[in-house]
Structure formats: structure tokens, C-alpha cells
Design a binder for these strands. Structure first.
Lengths: 353, 353
DNA sequence: TTGAAAGCGCTAACAG
DNA sequence: CTGTTAGCGCTTTCAA
């Protein structure tokens, strides 16, 4: 490992001069600088981050904290991580992957006590998240992918649920639908605190109201079986529903099966859209589902960038907050609603076809 | 940030004694040790990793290198990463996520030059991988998830393709199938060098041979469209095929559509299995596909553990090499083959049903 | 414009 | 058994 000293010797200058020349921290004569740069290049010099960090207190390492997620990791989470890693890399930062154990705050205390990281990127943020309180109190720079209930003072990048719901409703309304149902996650201990679950539900309600579209929002389903059941109940209670948005991929599988069992075709008899799911998943379905794809990679990038900005800004400028809507990817599951009464006669049992 | 010095002062001993007591690097009187530990606990002391690393040359940080993958990141890759991060965490190590840019070797040279990391975990290893050569020459400890063509001297964790293919063939043969087709990735510039693509193909060929099952291996498909075409050609050329294994998820979508268009039911008329795909993906299909699920998380864990073992072992013990077969998850797409001639008559065009 | 020197927090000889 | 000392490689005063 070649060090500053080696370079200094080769260029016949003092160590501090080399440091200055390479970092531009103070003026260095052009000729001297040239010699130094040459020497450094010849020796393949790389600054030692540990030494630098030890004195400067800045390591250019960010930690990405993620709870071992409740329902296994999806593409979405991966894209947060890779997006963040990329953005960090572009700015000369590194990303440390930190799985959280049972006690996230303890984990954070440990991690930040190491002196290894400059800041923290929080994933899977809940409406009330104890991690944010710890970080605020400890004065550790951080930003969130997602947001708490009251994120005023904190930088975050999150999905623009308002706009997303509005786009979805507009899409459906433009096709002529007058009544939309939404299958949310079931409000278990986790979802009850999980932003996307809560916010999507609320915003769908609001967006349909604004658009004058009738709304059915009190169903939930997380598995194929639940999707199937919910769908059957939905049709029983609301036979005039023509459009359905589903947040859980497995639930959509059940819905499709239940619809088929009823003899309903998609999209002729039912418009089905997937919410917060990647287009890659939507393509696994037949027909290819219309989907509202979360901008995961971008959120990761934004989160990292905000954090880095905050680290670079010596003073404390106001927190950055960015909301990005999902991308509406129209598949083959969106269509105009059936004419009234048109589909009721097709209740043949096709099981086994 | 409380330092060793603070602890030393509070416990009324020398700094080196504190270090020794806390690390057990040399005998310390029980009473002294107790005092030191108390002081450390009271002050909430955490060793500074940078300082420690600077002198000990060991940071307990591993880098996970991943090329920006050719077809977007899948669940599989994420699971490598999280598995590795977990295993690392358990051993007191940290995982740095390092996206590779255009020039992976240059990236590696930079990364390792930083003095920040103790070792490297390689993902997406190709049969000839220039990164391994660099690392070997540079003497940097590393291990691979996947393996090169001749990985003799290197530690790795990879899928046991032989066993995986054998299990798949056994499954199909036990159901009574006598002829199996396999749709591989198309041999583009990437796949031509990519281990799983090559090895899965080879091992399917070998396993069918051993099992006395007829084999069709010269088809490939990476998209739904290609899957559809390949399937039509397959049936034209081999009307007696009753079982099909597909490596690409989107291709399976095409196969299912093409089969349905032909009036073939799954599994009655065709047994379809997904190779190297997660059960979560397989569940998106209808019927739920039988799948050979790669042990991604475990491979990540193993890779990390091997690397750490190698770092801990001062001497150089032989490289560890582990092969883990995919898990066969039987879904609703496996069944006995149709009786000869049984399905030929159903070639009604059902498009629009 | 440059050099010398101090010190970041820690480990590892070496004395005592 | 414990304290003193010398660095690890770097940044950063402070003098020259």
C-alpha cells in the first residue's frame, strides 16, 4: 500500500504538500503540483480512507438500515438499495448494508458509535418510527425512504400517494368506470403502521371523491385465497363494481382466478390494476396487468442524495422532501366497463376448462 | 464520542490496559478488568473502527461487488445480498454494497486501494471472470457466489446444478414423463459466459441421459413472445413432449399462453416447471408453477462465511467450496403425462374465450 | 509557497 | 500484571 509518504519522497516534497496538492486544500505551485501528481500516478497512490476518516471525522460511508421485512424482500426494496448505492457511488460515497436485528435502536446506537458512518438512510419507515427519534436526539444526519406521520424536520423521499391515486382514478374514470374498489393489505400489526398501506387507502378514497367516482375501500387481501374471497364478497355486495385496484400481488392472483371462475373476462368484464407493484411482476400475469409502479430506484437515489447534500452543507439548511408518483404502466387489464347487465349472464361454472 | 482515553481516566489505568482488558489481548487482573468494564459501560464506550483498522489493518468490512445486472435485479440477487449481510453481521462484520461501473477491475483496484475493506464477495461470476484474476494477483481475500470455469483455488458457494437437474428430472420421470424439453436463456453475449445458463443446460442434458428420459435442449427464450414462439416450434418438432422446464419467467408466461391457445391444460396436457425462480414468482402464475428455487439467501450467507473464515484463519487453509441444490417446490403445474393421442384433438382455437 | 510537527483513537511492542 | 512509547496514514495548524 503506497502512502502519502512514498509520494512525498518520490516528488521530493513534504507530506503535507502532497496532501494539499492532491486535495486542493491550499495553493500549491503549479510545477510542484505537477510533480506530485505524476509521482502519485506512477505509484498508483490511493488515499487511505481510514486514516483520512480518523482525522477528518468523515468517512463518506452511509449506512442503509433495513428491518428484516415482514413479508420477505421484494424487488422494490432491492431497488431502493441499488438506487441508493449508485447515487452514493456517484458522489464518492459508499453504502453499508445494515440488517436490523430485534432492537433497531440498539443497532443504530452501536452502528453510529463505531465512527464508521457519516449518516444513515432509513428504509421501511413507519408512521411512528422510534429510529427517527433516536437519530434526531443523537444528532446523526439521516434521511428516509418513506416518511413518518409528521416528518416536517426530516429529509425524505417517498411515493406521492396523492398523485398516484389521482392518476389511477383518472385512468379508470377516463375509461368510463363509475365505481372503483380497492383491496388493501390487511391491517395487521405491521400494516397498521406502515405508510404505504395507510396512505394508499386514504388517497384512493380522496381521489375517487374528487373525481366523483364511487368507491369501495373496506376490503383487504394479502394472499391468493384472501383475494379470491374478497372478490366474491365484493361482487356480492357491490355487483356494479367494474374496476378494481389491488395492492398485493398474490391477492391479484386470487382475484383473477375468482373472476375467471365467474366467467368474467379481464378487461372486458373487469378492469384490474395492481398498485405499488413492479411492471416486471405485472407481466407475469395473463393478461398483463396495468400497474402503478413505484419509483423505487429513484427514491433510493433521492434519499442518498439528500443525505449527502445534508452532509456536505456545513450549515443546516432546511430538510429536503420529495414526493414522486408511481408510474402508470397500462397493460392489457384496463378497458371500458361492460354495459350494464352485460356480464351477469355469464355465471357459468368453468372450473376445469 | 467517548474514547479509550476517557475510559482509562475513569478507571484510573493506562490506555493500553483498557485496550487489553476489553479485547482480551493480554491478561488483566480480574479486579482491574471489572473496573474497566464498568467504566466502559458507564460511558457507553464503543471502539472506533477507523482507529482500530488503521493500526490493525483489519476493518471487518467486506465489499459485495455486483455488476449492474444485465436484466435488472431480481429477488435472487437481493437475497444474496441480504443473506451475506446477515451472515456478516452475525460475525461482527459489515457489508459494503458496491455497484460496479463500466470497468469492474478498475473499480476493484480503487475499492481495495482504500484500505477500507478486508475482503471481497463476488456476485454474478462469469465462467471467465477477470475480477478473480485481479484479486488473486493482488492477494486480496475473496469468495464467490457462483463460480468460474476452473475455480479450484477459490472459495465459492454455488448452486448444485447437477443435483438440481437430477431432482427435476426425477420429479418429472416419477410422474411418468418420458420426454423433457428445456428452454434456456438465449446465448447472447452475456449468457454465453454466465454460469447458471451454461451449467443448467449441461446438467439437464446429463440428468435426462442418466435417467433414460428423452431430452430436447436446443430451444431458448427470454421473453413472453419468444416463449410463445419456442413453444410452438417445440410442439411442431416434438409433438410427443409432455414436460417442459423453463429458465426465464417471462418465457413461461408465453409458454402458458401458447399452450392455452392450443387448448392444452396444465398440468393435464403439459407439465411445466420453472427453473431457478423463486416460489414467490411461481405463485403469480395460474396454475401455481412447480419451481426449482435457488437457495439464494443461503448462498449469500455461505459466501460471506467462507470469506470471513478465510480472513480469520491466519494460515492459508484450503478454499471452501459448497454446492447447494435448488429446492423443488411442487406446484399445480406438475402431473402425469397425458395418454398418447389424448390431447391432440383439442386444437380448438380458444382465443377470446 | 512549502515544511515541520501535532494528533485523530487505537494496537502492540517493550519496559518495569 | 501494568504503564510508557511508538507508530498506523492522514489532515491541519503554525512557522519559515
Amino acid at each position: 500500500m503506497t502512502s502519502l509518504r512514498d509520494v512525498a519522497e518520490r516528488a521530493q516534497v513534504a507530506i503535507s504538500t502532497v496532501s494539499a496538492a492532491l486535495n486542493g486544500t491550499r495553493p500549491v505551485a503549479a510545477e510542484t503540483k505537477r510533480r506530485i501528481e505524476l509521482a502519485a500516478a506512477e505509484l498508483g497512490y490511493r488515499p487511505n480512507l481510514l486514516a483520512r476518516g480518523l482525522v477528518s471525522k468523515r468517512t463518506r460511508i452511509l449506512a442503509l438500515l433495513y428491518p428484516t421485512p415482514h413479508s420477505g424482500f421484494g424487488l422494490t426494496e432491492m431497488q431502493f438499495a441499488t438506487g441508493a448505492a449508485e447515487a452514493a457511488g456517484e458522489q464518492g460515497y459508499h453504502l453499508l448494508l445494515s440488517p436490523e436485528n430485534a432492537d433497531p435502536v440498539e443497532e443504530l446506537r452501536y452502528l453510529t458509535g463505531l465512527g464508521l458512518i457519516d449518516g444513515v438512510l432509513l428504509m421501511e419507515v413507519r408512521l411512528d418510527d422510534e429510529r427517527t427519534e433516536f437519530l434526531m436526539e443523537a444528532g446523526i444526519p439521516f434521511s428516509m425512504i418513506g416518511r413518518t406521520r409528521n416528518p416536517e424536520a426530516i429529509s425524505y423521499a417517498d411515493i406521492d400517494f396523492t398523485q398516484t391515486a389521482q392518476n389511477a382514478v383518472a385512468h379508470v374514470a377516463a375509461l368510463g368506470h363509475r365505481k372503483l374498489a380497492f383491496f388493501n393489505h390487511s391491517p395487521d400489526a405491521y400494516s397498521a403502521q406502515y405508510g404505504p398501506t395507510i396512505r394508499t387507502g386514504e388517497e384512493f378514497a380522496a381521489a375517487t371523491r374528487r373525481a366523483g367516482v364511487e368507491y369501495v375501500g373496506d376490503f383487504c387481501a394479502d394472499s391468493a385465497e384472501e383475494g379470491r374471497e374478497a372478490f366474491d364478497r365484493l361482487v356480492a355486495e357491490h355487483p356494479d363494481v367494474t374496476a378494481l385496484a389491488v395492492i398485493s400481488d398474490p391477492a391479484a392472483v386470487g382475484v383473477i382466478a375468482a373472476a375467471a371462475a365467474r366467467g368474467w373476462r379481464i378487461p372486458q368484464d373487469l378492469t384490474l390494476i395492481l398498485v405499488l407493484s413492479s411492471a416486471r411482476v405485472a407481466e407475469m400475469f395473463h393478461p398483463r396487468l396495468t400497474t402503478l409502479e413505484p419509483p423505487s430506484g429513484e427514491l433510493g437515489r433521492l434519499g442518498a442524495r439528500m443525505l449527502i447534500d445534508r452532509l456536505q452543507a456545513d450549515g443546516d439548511d432546511p430538510p429536503q422532501q420529495r414526493l414522486v408518483p408511481c408510474r402508470l404502466v397500462v397493460g392489457d387489464s384496463s378497458g371500458p366497463p361492460p354495459a350494464p347487465g352485460e356480464r351477469d349472464d355469464r355465471t357459468i361454472d368453468r372450473t376445469g376448462t
